[in-house]
Simulated assay, not measured.
Amino acid sequence: MTAIANMHFTSPSRSISVVEGPILVASDGSAVSHEALFNAARLASSAFGGSIEVIGVCEPMPGVAAGMDVLPVPAEIDEARRASMVDDLHRSVNIAAAGDPSWPINVLVGSPPRTLAVEAERRGAALIVMGIGRHNPLDRLFGTETTLATLRESRVPVLAVGPNFPAAPSHAVVGLDFSVASIQAAHLALHLLAPGGKITLVHVRPRFEHPSADWQAWDADYGRTLPPLFEQIVAQLEVPAGIAVETITVRGDPAPALLAFAQQSNADLVAVGTQRHSLFERMVVGSVATRVLRTARVGVLAVPGRSDK
C-alpha cells in the first residue's frame, strides 16, 4: 500500500462540475464593504452563470422573562425589524456602484447561519457570498463567526471577502489534500481568476519526522507519489490558456503553512475544501477551514465535501 493510500486520499478521477444556480449575497444591510461584496457576487455570476440574489436574515427577538414565565415577543416586532432590514438592503444595493437595483432582495426571520444554509440548498445556489470583518475585534467576532457558523451548516460553497477583495483575483492559492472537496475548491477558484492569472496548488506534508527506517521509507514513498497525483489534478482541471499553474509541497501544520505561503506570494484568494462525515465533524467543520477563515487577510473560498446524515 502506498503512502498516499495510507493517508486515505481520494482518487482524482471523479468529474468536476459547477452548479449553475443563483449566487446568494448574504448581508444585513449594515456592512461597510458592500462594494467588495457586490463585486465578488458579480465575479461569481460571470464565472458560474447564475443570477444574483440578495438575502438577509433577521434573528427573532428572544422572549422576555416574567417571573417563572417567558413572554413571547409579538410577531409584529419581528416583522417590523424584517421590513427595516429590507429597506437597508435596498438602500445598500442602490448606493453601491457595484450594486444593481434589479437584484431580488429577500429577508427571512430565523437563525442566520442555519437559514442561509437551508435557503442556499433549497434554491440550488452555486455559491454564498458573505463579508468578513478584519478591522476591529467586533468585526472579527460578529462577521467572521457568522461566516464560520454558516459554513458549518452549509452544503453550498461559501466565498468570504473583505473590503479589499479585488474585482477579479490574479493569484489563488488552493490547499490541496487530494480529497474531492479540495479538487472542487481548485476548480471553482480557477473560474474566479482574472485572465492571465495564476493558481498555486499547495499540498502540506506532515511535519512529523522520525529517525526509524520505517518512517524514512514511508516518507520517501509519500514524496514519490505526489508528482503523478499533481499531474492528474492539473489535467482534470482543464486550465484555460493564459492561466499559469504551479504545484508546491511544503511541510508543517496545514492552516498556518497554507496561510504563510499565501501571504508570501501575495495571493488574493485562498481556497480550501472541508470534509464532514460525522455529527461532530459537521459541528467543527475542520480545523484547516476554520483557522484559515479566522486568520486569512485575503478572500477565502470554502467548499464543503459530502457528509453523511
Rank of each mutant, 00 (worst) to 15 (best):
P163A: 14
A36G: 02
P157M: 03
Q263M: 06
A44L: 06
V158Y: 04
V250S: 05
S265G: 01
A126L: 04
R42A: 06
L259Y: 01
P113C: 12
F9N: 00
L229D: 06
E79C: 01
D221V: 00
E231M: 06
A75R: 11
M7D: 08
R42F: 04
A235Q: 14
A97V: 12
V270K: 09
P195S: 11
A126T: 08
E153Q: 13
S45V: 03
G56S: 09
V202L: 15
T10E: 15
E153T: 06
F48H: 10
G67N: 04
S102M: 08
G242W: 01
Q263N: 13
L301W: 04
A66M: 14
P240D: 09
G67P: 07
G162K: 00
Q232I: 10
P22Q: 05
R42K: 14
L159F: 02
G124A: 11
N6V: 11
S170D: 09
D28G: 09
A189D: 07
F165R: 02
S15V: 13
V161F: 02
L141M: 14
P157Y: 05
S51F: 05
R152P: 02
V174S: 06
G252C: 12
A41T: 06
E246S: 15
V272G: 02
D28T: 04
P12E: 09
I105P: 02
A31M: 10
H277L: 13
Q275S: 13
F178P: 05
D268E: 12
L190N: 07
L201E: 08
G29D: 01
R82E: 05
V270P: 02
E35I: 00
P256L: 10
N39H: 13
T144Y: 02
T146C: 09
V239E: 04
H90I: 02
T295Y: 12
S265I: 00
G49I: 08
G223H: 13
I4G: 04
A83P: 00
I55K: 13
I199L: 10
R207A: 15
A80R: 13
